[in-house]
Design a protein around this nucleic acid. Structure first.
Lengths: 287, 287
DNA sequence: CCCTGTCATACCTGGGGGGTATCACCGCCG
DNA sequence: CGGCGGTGATACCCCCCAGGTATGACAGGG
């Protein structure tokens, strides 16, 4: 009948994630009884049971899982609307001039491409002000979805472009970054197999949502950390070619022959229709 | 601060579309003063002015336009969440079995592809129940966005696939559909220029959102209507090759040499993650 | 100059969202 | 087996705020 309220969605998401009314209520900063009631009302309203209450906690039904996924997308869209509206209203109060735009970039990646892009765009007539937002590991997608960013540089195959519009900007090979003195550093090229099986140099493991894939290598969540460990001869890493920009003297880069190429795209939410974005895209595709 | 409520969004959308508080309030089924207040609160909350109140109606600011676009996307996402949740909960109450799925298809298009797809999918083990939803002119995208449909057959270049994931299914040429007796019907092939300039047969104009592009041809919003007008020798139309399925005896189809090919895709919202959809895609790409 | 149409303000009321206290139920463990 | 802890549900209350009505302020047009 009448539409879902965002409050109800927020409540349900909390319960669906915690699978526990008490903890969910705490997270929401409210008491448990009104939360229980709100969820019941939601279920009545939708005419669907969302949770199975076993006496020991709760579990999601099929409909519950659906609402968990779709609801997250909807909440993201709402916060995106609020964020982008605030951003659009911050500077201009009428004309559409001086729009600010946020560009998300994986920290340290595509450095000179980014530099050239920003310089070229700044030279455009009535260029918008661009704020560069360094993003953590592969979270540019979330940032576009929830409105923290308006446009992003994304790197296939690490980022997924599904749900966004994009233009291809650049393709590059990958390199292995080795300690300068290591025997393998003398090679002209290497294969993935070569670098994944070095007995004294386990491949570094990157943090993904705070968890790490299993393996022998050191746990990394920061490029500086990684650079240091490589320089100390403790690990080896595989990066796109443009990573040469931040290599140290103690590093040696060796091209990999069989690593998949990395394609840099500029991506934006599919429904975007802004002049500033159009200008940036024009600049980017002309580079 | 605290998130936008859908009520506020709905209110703002109404005002932004009507550009008139009174009419917007009427459309919302409420009185004008609380609507005014709600919008003011919204503006205060966002810290942004959304409307310029000239004493003669209102106009949108830049931020207002942003909220109009982003808000529409957000509201669509919310109604989609509600619709899909209801649909998921209708049949199953726990297991995930017998999910229903809605497939949007432009009425009359890709008829035998659709037929083969449905037959092949129905033969799959634990196939979901598929409801076919005939859509009007090119509105499959909206249907995916607001949850009326879960998956759609879309036709490049008529539909835009931006924002969706898709798989290519079929490419076909286009044909001109002429009255059987017409001189041009005797040709083996024609060009677009040939059919757009026939003095006695103006090209039909299709309705787009209830409005028609300008031109001499008759206004059409229904395939049967069009078929009849062609049979009567009053107009000519250009269609994908698969339209041969519904030709009448009084029609003649002539291939067009220079018309852009029509590519049929199966498309779905980028964030979808359902087993039923995966099965349908597997079937579709194997056809 | 008044009348009309617009949005804003003032004030009131009722419903419902949220809180506290408590219940009902189950599983665990001594 | 009986208390005990921890779960979600119920009962009841209160007060805030969404919404309604009446009215104001202001601009433009005849």
């Amino acid at each position: 009948m009448d539409p879902l309220e965002t409050r109800e969605l927020r409540y349900f998401m909390a319960v669906a994630e915690e699978l526990h009314f008490g903890r969910a209520a705490e997270r929401l900063g409210m008491a448990q009884p009104p939360l229980s009631r709100a969820i019941q009302q939601l279920e009545r309203r939708l005419g669907v049971s969302l949770l199975k209450r076993n006496r020991r906690g709760v579990a999601l039904t099929g409909a519950g899982e659906m609402l968990l996924h779709e609801g997250r997308a909807a909440l993201d869209a709402i916060t995106a609307a609020a964020r982008r509206t605030r951003r659009a209203g911050g500077a201009d109060s009428s004309g559409g001039t001086r729009n600010r735009m946020v560009l998300a970039v994986k920290a340290g990646a595509s450095h000179d491409l980014l530099h050239k892009l920003l310089d070229a765009y700044a030279a455009e007539p009535d260029a918008a002000e661009i704020e560069v937002l360094p993003s953590g590991t592969c979270e540019q997608g979330e940032m576009l979805r929830d409105g923290r960013a308006d446009v992003a540089l994304m790197h296939k195959p690490f980022n997924s472009l599904t749900g966004f519009d994009s233009e291809e900007l650049m393709t590059e090979g990958q390199i292995a970054i080795l300690p300068a003195g290591h025997p393998l550093a003398a090679h002209k090229t290497l294969s993935l197999a070569d670098v994944s099986d070095i007995p004294d140099l386990p491949l570094a493991r990157w943090s993904r949502d705070g968890t790490y894939p299993p393996g022998p290598g050191p746990e990394i969540h920061d490029q500086t950390q990684l650079a240091q460990l490589i320089a100390l001869g403790r690990t080896v890493a595989v990066f796109p070619d443009s990573a040469r920009a931040w290599l140290w003297a103690e590093h040696t880069a060796v091209p990999l022959t069989d690593a998949p190429p990395v394609v840099t795209h500029i991506a934006w939410p599919a429904h975007s229709r802004s002049l500033a974005l159009a200008g940036l895209l024009r600049t980017a595709t002309r580079l």
